[in-house]
Structures are given as structure tokens and as C-alpha cells.
């Protein structure tokens, strides 16, 4: 009860620091989701639609990548972005940009696999029809992604949720710098390490509430189109 109370208090007080942390979490994870999607959605759709060389290899690799622990992704990005690493001269280690990169890499395989799964049944339905109409590859991608959009968005959401919830990668590449790269999860880790278990849990509840809110919102939006999705 006290924890719930504390969580509620945190939200109601809209403490500037907390707002900043929540905002940064959303900004980083949303951007990462958008960037990952930009590549993962067309590629995932292409994997569902066409046979091409190394397709199976790509599928196996991307599925395996889903099992990659965030810390490992974080570590790889860290080594790449470190001044001692190949991309060091950009100087983006310990910035939100580095966190966005790490999370994009982390959720890319998720969005890819879920997009592929979302497109597969629609492609199975549509293939002959689109063939009969001589639909161009680009048009075909657009049509299938659009008509599978609610399932695709669900995949995006799963990716976004994973990004928002992960701590291992962002703490390594972001450095958990107060007011700059500190997000909800790293704050929770930090408060836990300070023994502020109740504050940490309250923050966890705030995080959960945000996740529920966003999911409800998207679910609500997608329910408008659900009726078109019924497959025959």
C-alpha cells in the first residue's frame, strides 16, 4: 500500500526529474523502435513474401538474435562506440544516441520476426491475386504491410516494450548519467543499489503503468481495424 501510494505520489507530483527520466525513456525507446522498424518491417515482409538466396540463413540468424541478452548487445555497441573502437571519433558513447543505437539493434530481430509472422498469412491469401494483377514488388510490400498493419503494429509494440524495459544495454552504453542518459530502468537499478527498494518499486509501477497505458492506446486504435482482419 505504501509503495502504491508512493508510486501514485510520484505520478501526481510530476516531479521535474521524474518527468525528465520518463520522457527520456520514451524518447529513446520510441526512436529506437522507429529506427528498427524502418529496416525490420520491409525486410521482415520481404522474408515472408519472396524466396531469395540466404533467406533461410537470414531467418535462422534473426531468430537466434532474439535470444541475445541486452548486456551483450550493449557491450558490442560499447566497444564499437568507444574512443578506442572503430566508431569512436563520433564521440557518441554515453549519450542518448548510443542508447538509441543499442536498443535499435536489440529490438530489430524482434520486429523483424514478428513482421514476418504478421505478413505470412496475408501473403498466403493475397499471393495469387497480386500475381494476377502484376503488382510491382514495392507496391506488393506496401499492400501487404498495410493490410497486416494491426499485426505489424503489435510486433512494434512488443519491440517497444522490450526496449522500454531493458536495462542491460542502456546502462553500459548510456552510463546512467543523471539528467542526461538516466532512464526509468537505470534509475530503478540505481535506486535498488542504494537500498531505496520502495522508491525503486514505485518507479517500477510507474513504468508498468506507462506500458499499460501505451498498450491500451494502441490496442484501442487497432480495434477499429480488427474487423477487416478476419481471414476467410
Amino acid at each position: 500500500m505504501t509503495i502504491l501510494g508512493q508510486a501514485a505520489e510520484l505520478v501526481v507530483s510530476a516531479d521535474a526529474e521524474l518527468v525528465g527520466i520518463v520522457g527520456l525513456s520514451l524518447r529513446v525507446s520510441l526512436t529506437a523502435t522507429l529506427i528498427a522498424s524502418l529496416f525490420a518491417i520491409p525486410l521482415g515482409a520481404a522474408l515472408a513474401i519472396w524466396q531469395f538466396p540466404f533467406r533461410q540463413v537470414l531467418i535462422v540468424i534473426s531468430t537466434s538474435l532474439m535470444a541475445l541478452p541486452p548486456v551483450v548487445v550493449g557491450l558490442i555497441i560499447y566497444l564499437l562506440l568507444s574512443r578506442a573502437g572503430p566508431l569512436g571519433h563520433y564521440g557518441i558513447l554515453f549519450t542518448p544516441t548510443a542508447m538509441i543505437i543499442a536498443q535499435s539493434v536489440l529490438i530489430f530481430p524482434i520486429v523483424l520476426a514478428l513482421t514476418r509472422e504478421a505478413i505470412l498469412p496475408v501473403n498466403r491469401d493475397y499471393k495469387n491475386l497480386l500475381d494476377a494483377w502484376d503488382v510491382s514488388p514495392v507496391q506488393r510490400l506496401k499492400t501487404l504491410i498495410w493490410d497486416a498493419r494491426f499485426a505489424v503494429v503489435t510486433g512494434l509494440l512488443a519491440g517497444f516494450g522490450r526496449a522500454l524495459a531493458e536495462v542491460g544495454a542502456v546502462i553500459i552504453v548510456g552510463g546512467n548519467i543523471a539528467g542526461f542518459t538516466r532512464v526509468m530502468t537505470t534509475t530503478i537499478a540505481l535506486e535498488t543499489s542504494k537500498g531505496n527498494l520502495e522508491l525503486a518499486l514505485a518507479l517500477g509501477i510507474v513504468l508498468l503503468s506507462i506500458a499499460i497505458l501505451i498498450n491500451a492506446l494502441i490496442h484501442w486504435i487497432s480495434s477499429f481495424g480488427q474487423k477487416y482482419q478476419v481471414s476467410r
Binding site: 568507444s82 574512443r83 578506442a84 573502437g85 569512436g88 558513447l93 554515453f94
Partner: peptide, 11 residues
């Protein structure tokens, strides 16, 4: 240890 490493790498 990690802080030293970070500084050593110029980060």
C-alpha cells in the same frame, strides 16, 4: 576498474 578502463580508452 571499469572507470579506469573507460578513461584509458578516452571515453
Amino acid at each position: 576498474g571499469q572507470a579506469l578502463k573507460i578513461a584509458q580508452n578516452g571515453d
